[in-house]
Computed example of a mutant assay.
Amino acid sequence: MTGITQLRRSDVGRCHPEKRHRPPNRPSAAASGGPFRVVVFATEGVSSFALGAVSQVFADRSHLGLPRFSLTVCAGEGGALRTDLGLLLSVEHGPEAMRTADLIIMLPTEARPLTVRRPVVDAIGDAFRRGTIVAAYGTGSFLLAETGLLDGRRAATDWALAGRLAERHPRITVDPVALYVDEGRIVTGAGAAAGIDMCLHLLRRELGPAVSDAVAREAMVAARRASGQVQYVPAPWSVGGARRAGFRDPRLDEVLLWARTRLREAMSVDDLARRALMSPRTFARRFREATGTTPRTWLRDQRLDRAEELLETTDLPIQKIADLVGMGSDGVLRDHFVKRHGIPPRDWRRDSTRR
C-alpha cells in the first residue's frame, strides 16, 4: 500500500505547532460572543448517519449555558440530493456558505467517483487561507484530498479504504488505524462513528473539555476516545474505558476506576493485575481484549487527559500538575505533551485561554 506509514501510537494525533494556531485575522465567532459556525459539505449519496451525527454534536444547546452553534448544510450547488438511504435532502446553500465558517466538515458519501468540482475546491481553499478549520472523515477524506490540502500531511479515513486513498494520493501519509489525525487546522477521521470522536475532539480543542464533555453527555456518546485507538476495535464506553460492545468485566471496570482516582501514585501493570486478582499476563490480555490498547498506554493517556484538564481549568504550576498526574517532573510531562500535541504544556495552556 503505497503511502501508508506504520506509526507508533505516541505519534498518532500529533500536530505541527505552526499549523495549530488560528491566524490572527480569523478569530472564531464564538470568541466574540457569536455562534460557532459549522458548515457541512454534502454530495450525492451523503451518509444519513453522518448528517445525523454531526447535527447532534453541533446542535444548539445555548439554553444549557453552552456556546451557541450554527449549523449549515451546503453542496456543490443548491438543490436536492439523495442520501445513501434514498432520502431526498433539500440543500439551500452552495459553496458560498463556507465564507463565514469557523469549521467546515466534508461528510462521507456512498456515491462514486469521489471528486469535487472546482468551485468547491476554491471555496475550501479560500476558507482555509482565512483561518477556517477544515475536517473530513470516512470517504469525506477523499473529497478533502481533491482540494490538495492534505498533500504533505498525515490523514485518516475508513481503514478499509486506506490503501485506496494512499494509492490515489501518494503525497498523503495515510494512517490506516487512527480514529482521527489532528494536523492543526486540518483534521481527518476514520469511518462511521469515528466522525463523532473527531467532532468531539475538535470541540475539546477549540472550546475546552467542559464543553465537549457536556455535549457528549447530552448526545449520550463516549466523551473521548484517544486518536490512537484502533478504529476497527469496538470502542470502550463505560467508566474507565474497560468495556466495549459485547464485552463486560466488572473487575476491570473497578480496577480502572480505582486507578483513575490515584493517578498521582506510581502504578505498574503488576499493581493493576493484583488489584484485578489476575496474573500480569492474563490481565494484559484481558485488558487489550476490552479496550484495544495496553495498560501502560491507557495509564499514560489518563494522566495526559487529566493534565490537559488541569492546564485548562487551573493556574497550578506545570511542575505541580506533573506531580498530581503522576508524571514526576515537568520535563516528562512536556515530552509526552509534545508527542501527543506537537506543543508543550505551557503553549497548550496559553492557547486554551484564547478559545
Rank of each mutant, 00 (worst) to 15 (best):
I318T: 15
P344W: 01
A322W: 02
D323E: 15
F337G: 07
R334C: 08
L324T: 06
L310N: 05
S329L: 06
H341N: 08
W348L: 15
R334Y: 00
I321L: 03
W348C: 08
P317M: 10
I343G: 07
E309L: 14
A322Y: 00
G326Q: 07
R349I: 02
D335N: 09
D323K: 15
V325H: 06
L311S: 00
K339C: 10
V332D: 09
V325N: 03
L310S: 05
R340D: 00
I343C: 06
L333R: 01
G328W: 11
F337R: 09
W348A: 12
P317V: 05
R346I: 09
T313D: 02
V338R: 09
I321P: 02
Q319W: 11
D335A: 15
H336E: 14
D335K: 15
P344K: 04
K339H: 12
T313L: 07
L324D: 11
M327K: 08
D315Y: 03
R334V: 05
T313W: 00
P344I: 02
K339D: 14
K320F: 04
S329K: 08
P345V: 04
D323M: 13
T314W: 01
V325W: 03
R349Q: 10
E309N: 12
I321Q: 00
E312D: 11
G342H: 02
G342E: 02
R346N: 11
L333G: 01
V332Y: 08
L316F: 04
Q319T: 13
D335W: 09
K320P: 03
V325A: 05
G331K: 15
A322Q: 03
G326D: 06
W348V: 13
D330Y: 08
V332Q: 11
I318W: 04
G331Y: 13
R349D: 01
S329P: 08
R350D: 13
T313C: 00
R340I: 04
I321C: 05
P317W: 08
I318S: 05
P345D: 06
G331W: 13
K339A: 15
P344T: 00
H341S: 07
